[in-house]
């Protein structure tokens, strides 16, 4: 998954140029800001039609355990297609979403960006760390950190997210809810 395929033309491994890295970094920052501004329709514009979003629930297991911290078939916080994500977001837009009014103040902080080639000629495997800070009402503050692995595609219309996996660190989710994406 992370080994760089050889470039057939010159046999050198494909590498992200500074320009590509810069484009991807700006793409991730913009995407994070759209979430902060709760502009979900604009956020969804950044997704490929086939976008999948997986945020597994980690389990604290012994190192010797055959099963790992994160597993595919377990209960997940998100295991969604684009249409399913749109359904979730559509609730936040309802006038009757009482607890969203006044709105949550969101800050998504993105760092530790690494860009590696992926199998598709126009695809990049992008790792990053995301931290979501939410403040609500008078004194409610919730933090959630996760390591992300994205598949990002260069298209004529610009960059598009094809897949995102977020490996959060909390086994017990230390908040009452999660009313954004990460």
């Amino acid at each position: 998954m992370v080994t760089a395929p050889a470039n057939p033309k010159n046999n050198a491994p494909r590498q992200a140029s500074l320009e590509v890295f810069h484009l991807i970094q700006q793409f991730l920052y913009r995407e994070a800001r759209l979430l902060d501004e709760q502009r979900y329709d604009d956020w969804f514009q950044l997704m490929d039609e086939e976008f999948t979003y997986w945020v597994p629930v980690p389990q604290a297991r012994y190192r010797r355990d055959k099963k790992g911290t994160y597993e595919r078939d377990r209960m997940a916080h998100f295991d969604d297609s684009l249409a399913e994500l749109k359904l979730r977001a559509s609730r936040w837009k309802q006038r009757t979403a009482w607890s969203e009014d006044p709105p949550t103040r969101n800050i998504h902080y993105i760092s530790n960006i690494e860009v590696e080639p992926s199998e598709g000629e126009n695809d990049w495997l992008v790792r990053s760390v995301a931290i979501s800070l939410r403040n609500r009402n008078e004194d409610e503050e919730d933090w959630l950190g996760g390591r992300r692995i994205d598949l990002i595609r260069q298209t004529p219309e610009g960059l598009r997210l094809v897949r995102r996996e977020v490996f959060i660190a909390q086994t017990v989710f230390l908040s009452k809810n999660f009313n954004t994406f990460i």
Partner: peptide, 11 residues
């Protein structure tokens, strides 16, 4: 089903 979800509520 495999797995479960745990969360904290100040309730």
């Amino acid at each position: 089903l495999e797995g479960n979800v745990k969360s904290r509520l100040r309730s």
